[in-house]
Nucleic acid binder design. Structure first.
Length: 618
RNA sequence: GCCCCGGUAGCUCAGUUGGAUAGAGCAGCCGCCUCCUAAGCGGCAGGUCGGACGUUCGAAUCGUCUCCGGGGCACCA
């Protein structure tokens, strides 16, 4: 009888389609070729042509040009110097010593000394059966098996709705996570909720003031809204909800609220001092419990909104991690104690400083302020300490590029704690600038008018938004063309790829309408009929897919997959225009349909990893 | 001033971790539906890979310097 384990309330199972089985392990071609070359190298070492103490890493690459065969190796050029031998001559010797293989048709020495491999037809055709057999699992692998990785991304302050800058982090973080899961890692996606700190107090104060307004305390403009408060309409919504549920329970007279407060900026004062005074006043008048009610009303409302927004965007988390919980669990104190014990902290001007300059940071950083409050940085130290304590093999943070200055101090803190800072990868995502009609559509955050992620999703759709965000390398500034993302034409890469998928579906429908059926076995038995250059190109492309997924995952570069899918769609459309699939010859027809179905499968798998839908008709 | 990222075709970007003749898509020009969706395909044209020097068999890729653009340098989060 199975036991039910209680899950933490904010923890959930991965909701994405899980296909636990991985691609059946046909020994990857690169490894086969590597071992052939290794055999030859070993012989040459015995013959002392190559120094025995040399153990070169054998690199096998896909060729760029089909006339160079399928794979190429540059080992002869690498070893030419130590072997005191011309690269081409060495290449010839290596080729002569390589054992025969039933997957290799031809081995040739070319150019300055490349060894080019051409696969047998049987080996190139095999991919079709592999894809159709593996289905959704094709492209998955087990490189990351038994390794766990935590990916923290978005983690925007819950002080307002997500904007388009967060969108890029969301799409990128989710794609990296899904890719890592696809290559076998156990992935823990996490959103760090900044539910403590001054910004949240400002939010609470903003909500409270709007609430007081709704109670009637601002009937004659006697309760001015702070310059530094959050002015968005959503604050009104939260205040209205608060008033609906609590009526006048948190009401205090405007004069009481404002009594003896310093001047706001609008009255010639300092807006920072003013807002802090207002927060103190709110806490004093409301008392701890009521203040927390107002605070939580703001926090929960916005967090729920963010959660719904992200879910709609295909981004789900295993955990929403509370910053406040770090303080409550004592993790922050514990981190500070550990740093004190190892004498990485010192006291100056009433504050406690972390000596991060010992670890290459440009200046030391405060962890406990002179007023006794711990800083955001202290929470971050505790958080990262805690992440590593959880035992992940690797930890990834996806941050906006504007936080890059933060990386050295976080790594410094981990090192100071005696943890392995190299387990942490911080991936920095550059800004996305929206263009509409060729002009910038994004307002500056300073003016308070920013395009929200939700607006973007509504305007261009989730598919286009997800795809466009990951089309570029994350460190590349991105121009996001809204018109292109919305356009339903081949200019739009999303539609272009989806259309390829829909076309295959359409072909299969046509087949049915003609009263025909597809015999897959017969098709697989007649793959040799696929001799057209377009077909060869598709076969090669299909075989590359697992390599692309692997590279995209391990290098955290989902754009590789996006580009691959576009190229594959192009291969398909070209093929589609050049040849009929539904021909009279049953053998050719069945073979072509096998190829085309395999193509559809790979497009579906690839778009699936990017959370882009695969329509069956368009 | 110091640090991070970028600079490749008119525009937006790739470039398999140092490989062979630098590639796509837009935009421009010329073609292709009696045919499984023309939301598609083919062709032409377009380049001093910001610049200089260096490293080596070989550089868009690595190093140093330099120019241009973006961002960051809190007892904020």
């Amino acid at each position: 009888m199975a036991l039910n384990f209680a899950l933490k309330t904010d923890t959930r199972e991965i909701t994405s389609k899980t296909t636990p089985e991985t691609t059946p392990e046909t020994t990857p071609m690169k490894e086969q070729l590597t071992s052939l070359i290794q055999t030859a190298i070993d012989v040459l070492k015995n013959q002392q042509v190559i120094p025995a103490d040399l153990s070169p890493s054998i690199q096998i690459d896909r060729t760029r040009d089909a006339s160079h065969g399928d794979y190429a190796c540059n080992i002869a050029m690498m070893l030419a110097k130590p072997a005191k031998c011309k690269p081409r001559d060495l290449a010839e010797q290596i080729v002569a010593l390589m054992p025969a293989s039933d997957t290799v048709e031809k081995i040739a020495v070319a150019g300055p000394g490349f060894i080019n491999f051409t696969l047998t037809d049987a080996a190139s055709f095999a991919v079709v059966a592999t894809v159709l057999e593996a289905g959704e699992a094709y492209g998955r692998s087990s490189i990351g098996k038994n390794k766990s990785i935590q990916v923290e991304f978005v983690s925007a302050n819950p002080t307002g709705p997500l904007h388009v800058g967060h969108g890029r982090g969301a799409a990128y973080g989710a794609a990296v996570s899904d890719l890592l899961a696809a290559v076998g890692y156990k992935v823990h996606r996490e959103y760090y909720v900044n539910d403590a700190g001054r910004q949240m107090d400002i939010l609470a104060a903003s909500v409270w003031l709007r609430y007081l307004d709704l109670c009637g305390e601002n009937a004659n403009d006697e309760l001015p809204f702070p310059v530094n408060g959050y002015k968005g309409d959503y604050i009104w919504d939260i205040a209205a909800m608060l008033h609906r549920e609590n009526s006048d329970a948190f009401r205090h007279a405007a004069q009481t609220v404002l009594k003896d407060l310093p001047a706001d900026e609008s009255a010639g004062g300092d807006k920072e001092i003013y807002i802090d005074a207002l927060i103190s006043r709110a806490k004093a008048l409301l008392g701890e419990e009521a203040y927390r009610s107002v605070f939580d009303a703001g926090l929960n409302s916005i967090l729920d909104d963010i959660r719904r927004d992200l879910e709609g965007f295909g981004v789900v988390y295993e955990e929403w991690f509370s910053e406040r919980s770090l303080t409550e669990s004592g993790a922050v104190d514990r981190a500070i104690e550990r740093l004190k014990e190892s004498s990485h902290l010192y006291e100056k001007d009433g504050a406690w400083w972390f000596r991060s300059t010992d670890f290459g940071d440009e200046k030391d950083r405060v962890v406990v302020r002179d007023n006794g409050q711990t800083t955001y940085f202290a929470s971050d130290i505790a958080y990262h300490m805690q992440k590593l304590e959880r035992g992940y093999d690797r930890v990834i943070d996806v941050w906006g590029a504007d936080h890059h200055g933060y990386v050295p101090r976080v790594k410094a803190a981990l090192t100071a704690l005696g943890d392995d800072a190299s387990k942490l990868d911080v991936l920095l995502v550059q800004f996305a600038i929206l263009y509409r009609g060729g002009v910038k559509a994004q307002m500056s955050t300073r003016s308070g008018e920013f395009v929200t992620l939700r607006e973007l999703r509504e305007e261009v759709g989730d598919d286009a938004a997800r795809f466009f965000y990951v089309m570029r390398k994350c460190e590349q500034h991105m121009d996001f063309d809204l018109d292109l993302a919305k356009s339903q034409s081949s200019d739009n890469p999303v539609y272009y790829i989806q259309y390829a998928h829909a076309r295959v579906c359409s072909v299969m429908r046509q087949l049915e309408e003609k009263g025909l059926t597809h015999n897959s076995e017969n098709g697989l038995a007649n793959l040799a009929m696929l001799s057209e250059s377009h077909e060869q190109a598709l076969l090669t492309r299909l075989a590359r897919y697992p390599e692309v997924v692997e590279a995209a995952a391990l290098n955290h570069e989902p754009h590789l997959l996006a580009h691959f899918l576009r190229d594959m769609a192009n291969d398909f459309h070209t093929y589609y225009n050049a040849h009929q699939f539904l021909v009279d010859d049953v053998c050719v027809r069945d073979a072509r349909l096998c190829l085309v179905k395999a193509t559809r499968q790979v497009i579906a798998n690839g778009l699936g990893l990017l959370a882009v839908s695969v329509p069956e008709s368009m």
